[in-house]
Design a protein around this nucleic acid. Structure first.
Length: 802
RNA sequence: GCCGCUAUGGUGGAAUAGGCAGACACAGGCGACUUAAAAUCGCCAGGUGGAAACACCAUACCGGUUCAAGUCCGGUUAGCGGCACCA
């Protein structure tokens, strides 16, 4: 019979659907496994060949775990709020809700076509009011704990999307999504206090099984540094507070620098003689874009304050104060002590402005360059610190500062609070109300979900106001506190809101009383294995860890980290090795691949394409090889003979393959697992016959990769039930080794012969046999044997001299 | 600038913990079947030289450790990613 993949795949997809074969069981006594892939944004373009790579990989994990007896949760849903849908809706005059519905239908049918074993009864959709009710509920809890606040501030404004962006969404001065220029704008914004979790977001990474680059990227992004805050007296009266990571160099502080935006400048306006110059500089700095500031990084500019000086607290010396845009108002205290001898930026500035350079750590030549090595230096010119190492001095000076009441140890972070307002329609309404008497008030939880009003004019106004602001009938409401007239918040939440907790909803998706029941959370959580893109490392992944920790702190969730394990897949590139894109004309459509070769071939190829973590180019020719392999498996069914044991010829190969495939799947090495299965099939063809025992094992091992064909062959071969309910085969370690092995014989590391010997041959016998080989004898003749090495089962190496 | 990762045939990629480099495929060559082609099956296949046996060279480059290095160490180059005036 011919392998009719279309009929086979349609048949089994229908059966799985009708029988709910892959639904997670409600039996909380079974061992559980929660496998998760990032839910997609249902774009208008439909599925891309990149999507199935992680979906198939975790599908294989999920299917294997089921065969191993686990109750598996492998869910899927839709991260459906967002700008592309809104933009498409505007262009085509269709409501975003309808666009979303259409896109989801398309995505869903494409995912089903791939035979992915998702539990479709647990599908979630972030734009469903029953879902975003809980997104809003979490926001209210954040507000009640003081972790959501509204603040007027300088924010990133995308000129393309006409919307405010979080720091995480700005890449190299451009919008992460559309690539447009990002400018600064002062706006009143809802903020989430992610910085309150900065320490824990770093420290708790330690015990997680995340790939290393994810951990380092999050650590870098959070950017923790340890140092001290020190108060410098000034002749203006106010003390100037600074932050430094090098308090040990305090004796070398020869001037100070304030950020041009520092609030003291205006306060000191009557004392600063050259205030005009200061204001002019500030004006200039404000007009520089982020890009310009970076470009000019090398060339320091600044203005010296005339009329105000600071006092170095360690020696009472008066030192000058400058303003310069190399000091950022947003980090630390917005002012620094400058130690030109031991900081490159300060050194450069000092050279340009003729400031004094005092060496306080010996080890370099501070006239030539700043000496920044902390490991080897010894303190000099530093009073009571002289002779100490840098580390000793840091501790000693910090103690001294505390004792004198002029400073203290301090930890700082690069991480900023999360800008949480977006001036767009297609997002969750922020459930807050402004009352002129009572200020910001949360709406009552009983009023959730606060639904998006049905409007037709959802174009952004461009003036920084949300489209919702135009709808006064929705905006005007009453104050939940005093009952007086009030206005709703018209900004919506960012796209990252709904995805910050979706993994929790899957555990109990239809619960109307809570985001999920306690029992479901306790049983299913945390996620055992989460795979997703590296581009989400400092966005979704960080945000969702933050929300989960918050929900843990308020007792809603019983685990403090949402994901035990995190892996990441490489991109699938076009055949020319470039990123797939319409403009490059190298896009491969999964529909075409499935139509021409079938879902099983597509799945197999996606896994066989290469190292899962690395990018790999799509090779249309190579797809055929995977199809050919499945044809060979199909053809093998004609060679099946009775026999409930392995044949002698294949026994070792069977055990080895089971071991290899079992371990490789667990290590995400799907490509070598498939190679092992190919080798086994080749061996089976060499044997001409396959026993039913061997056949059932082959089908089971292949099932997670190619579920349709294996299900069909299982049924045709008369095995009981569905293969989806079969048991994963076991292997016997002892039977994985062969009784005879081929070993290599080297002379001075050079291969001279190969010998077939008993696997358990003694060292002396192996060496004697090796020496008896003519080629080896020839190579060692007349020379002195210095050393003889025997690596069991691998090789003999004879080292000779002369 | 700082931190991290990567480099293997014509191609994608294998190679546990230092132990036969190139598994498994793709593309290619030769042969069988066929009127022919496709499909399928069998064989060959890192490079150079040689009819062959065989020899030499070979995991980006240079050096080191070792009986033995793709793997470990030092240096260089190229590419990718992250951070980037964060005091």
């Amino acid at each position: 019979m011919k392998y009719d993949f279309k009929a086979v795949e349609a048949k089994w997809q229908k059966i799985w659907d009708e029988e709910k074969t892959f639904a997670a069981k409600q039996d909380f006594t079974l061992p559980k496994y929660y496998a998760l892939v990032e839910f997609p944004y249902p774009s208008g373009q439909g599925l891309h060949v990149g999507h199935p790579r992680p979906y198939t990989a975790l599908d294989i994990i999920a299917r294997k775990k089921r065969l191993q007896g686990y109750n598996v949760l492998y869910p899927m849903g839709w991260d459906a709020f967002g700008l592309p849908t809104e933009n498409y809706a505007m262009k085509n005059h269709i409501h975003p809700e309808i666009v979303t519905e259409k896109n989801i239908a398309r995505f869903k049918s494409q995912l089903k076509m791939l035979g992915l074993s998702f539990d479709w009864d647990r599908e979630v959709n972030t734009t469903d009011p029953d879902y975003y009710k809980w997104t809003q509920w979490i926001f209210l809890q954040l507000y009640k704990k003081g972790l959501a606040y509204k603040k007027e501030m300088n924010v990133n404004w995308c000129t393309g999307c006409k919307v405010v962006l979080a720091n995480e969404e700005v890449v190299g001065g451009k919008c992460e999504r559309c690539g447009s220029d990002v400018v600064h704008k002062v706006k009143s914004q809802w903020m989430l206090k992610i910085t309150a979790y900065a320490d824990r977001l770093i420290d708790d990474l330690k015990d997680l099984d995340f790939i290393e680059r994810v951990k380092t990227q999050q650590i870098n992004w959070i950017g923790r540094s340890h140092g001290a805050e020190v108060r410098f007296a000034t002749t203006a009266g106010d003390d100037l507070l600074i932050y430094t990571t090098r308090p040990d160099t305090l004796f070398g502080a020869t001037y100070m620098v304030m950020s041009p935006e520092h609030p003291f400048l205006e306060k000191w306006a009557d004392k600063i003689v050259n205030m005009d110059e200061v204001r002019a500089y500030r004006e200039e700095a404000a007009h520089k874009s982020d890009f310009e500031r970076t470009e000019l990084a090398k060339d320091k500019t600044g203005v010296k304050l005339d009329g105000v000086r600071a006092v170095n607290p360690v020696n009472g010396r008066e030192i000058p104060i400058f303003i310069s845009d190399y000091v950022l108002i947003s980090y630390g205290t917005g002012a620094i002590m400058a130690v030109p001898a031991h900081d490159e930026r300060d050194w450069e500035f000092a050279k340009k402005f003729g400031c004094e350079i005092i060496e306080v750590v010996k080890g370099g030549n501070v006239e030539e360059a700043a000496f920044t090595d902390c490991a080897t230096g010894v303190m000099v010119n530093s009073g009571f610190l002289n002779g100490m190492s840098v580390d000793e001095a840091k501790k000693a000076i910090t103690d001294w500062l505390v004792e004198k009441g002029i400073g203290e140890a301090k930890t700082n972070f690069k991480l900023r609070d999360w800008v949480f307002s977006r001036q767009r329609y297609w997002g969750e309404p922020i459930p807050m109300v402004w009352c002129d008497h009572c200020g910001w008030q949360p709406i009552d939880e009983s009023e959730l979900p606060l639904r998006l009003p049905e409007i037709t004019d959802f174009e952004p106004s461009g003036d920084g106001e949300s489209p919702l602001a135009r709808h006064t009938e929705w905006v005007n409401t009453t104050c939940p506190k005093c009952g007086g007239p009030a206005k709703r918040e018209t900004d919506t939440m960012p796209q990252w809101a709904g995805s910050s907790w979706y993994f929790l909803r899957y555990m109990d998706p239809h619960n109307s009383e809570a985001l999920a029941s306690r029992e479901a959370l306790e049983y299913w959580g945390p996620v055992d294995w989460y795979n997703g893109g590296m581009e989400h490392t400092t966005l979704h992944l960080l945000y969702s860890r933050f929300w989960n920790k918050f929900l843990y702190d308020i007792g809603v969730v019983p685990f403090s980290e949402p994901y035990k394990k995190r892996t990441s897949h490489g991109m699938i590139l076009g055949a020319n090795g470039e990123k797939m894109s319409k403009s490059r004309g190298n896009v491969v459509n999964p529909d075409d691949v499935v139509r021409d070769y079938g879902a099983d071939t597509m799945r197999l190829y996606e896994m066989f394409i290469g190292d899962f973590e690395k990018a790999a180019p799509w090779n249309p020719e190579s797809v055929k090889g995977c199809r050919r392999f499945l044809e060979r498996v199909w053809g093998l069914s004609e060679h099946v003979v009775d026999g409930d044991a392995y044949s002698a010829a294949l026994e070792g190969a069977m055990h080895r393959t089971i071991k290899k495939v079992t371990e490789d799947i667990e290590n995400l090495k799907m490509n070598t697992a498939i190679a092992a299965l190919m080798t086994l099939v080749n061996d089976m063809y060499d044997q001409k016959t396959v026993t039913r025992a061997e056949w059932s094992v082959l089908l089971t091992l292949l099932n997670p990769f190619a579920p349709h064909i294996t299900e069909e062959l299982w049924q045709q071969s008369g095995f009981e039930g569905q293969i989806a309910h079969a048991r994963w085969p076991e292997y016997d370690e002892a039977k994985c080794v062969e009784s005879t092995v081929e070993i290599a014989v080297q002379v001075n590391g050079k291969l001279r012969a190969r010998l077939t010997v008993a696997a358990d041959i003694a060292k002396d016998d192996a060496i004697a046999l090796a020496k008896a080989d003519p080629a080896v004898a020839n190579a060692i003749e007349g020379k002195t044997v210095v050393k003889e090495i025997y690596v069991p089962g691998k090789l003999v190496n004879i080292a000779v001299k002369g």
